[in-house]
Design a protein around this nucleic acid. Structure first.
Lengths: 116, 116
DNA sequence: TCTTGACTTAGAGTTAACTTTAACTGTTAG
DNA sequence: CTAACAGTTAAAGTTAACTCTAAGTCAAGA
């Protein structure tokens, strides 16, 4: 149940403080609190959420879609189905992407072997 | 040894004519010729080159780097080593990327199975 | 001959995702 | 007490990669 300043959180999740503020402004991090001086306090939950955001982003989901997912998440059980549908669709996208990457890998390897 | 108008080429490689002109302006397609009326004629070679550009781009290489690669390619045998070094480095990047995608896939699948 | 349609160019506009700036505030070490 | 520091905000700036607009050219069909 530890707390992180923006600097610490930034280090922890390997994103700049600018990016963390930006994600918050875009509504991706609705639960970040502030201390009495108005400074952000990141909880473990926030860091986990950022981790999952990075996962979705790393697999090509746009911030806009990630926010959509997050918004459904905020609505709890009621939106569980919709939310999971999004994830399952995304799962297919990742599987497709891995296939494409493997194909591209072969093309690059072929080019390397070509020796021309 | 067929020739393609920009419309046909565009259809063939699944990029808009705008994008094809843009790639050319950026120096990625130095061999596209023009007919007597000034209209672009795409050769099979050009289409193959576009195909490889799409492959590199699809695996996260920036147009700037793709141009660097293309420039080395234009210099022929003299730059073979440098050029292949680029590809081998990129090959590693793709392998790494596939690993990361697989990790992210597992995270998404775990979230799906979580049913919360 | 006239018009339609596919092309041409230079340059402006768009979008996503940051990234920085400017002006300011509250905390802390000397 | 004060200077340095780490944070705050709103808003402007940046970058990559397109995407579109405007004004014009050229060839082919009615």
């Amino acid at each position: 149940m530890s707390l992180y300043t923006i600097a610490k959180a930034s280090e922890e999740v390997d994103l700049t403080p600018y990016t963390l503020r930006y994600y918050e402004k875009e509504g991706l991090l609705p639960n970040v609190t502030k201390d009495s001086a108005g400074r952000r306090k990141y909880h473990d939950d926030d860091l986990q959420r950022i981790g999952f955001i990075k996962c979705l982003k790393g697999t090509g989901m746009s911030l806009k879609q990630i926010k959509e997912y997050g918004d459904l998440y905020e609505q709890g059980k009621a939106k569980f189905k919709e939310r999971n549908a999004m994830l399952e669709e995304h799962r297919e996208k990742i599987l497709q992407e891995i296939k494409t990457q493997k194909k591209h890998l072969k093309m690059v390897e072929a080019k390397i072997e070509m020796k021309i």
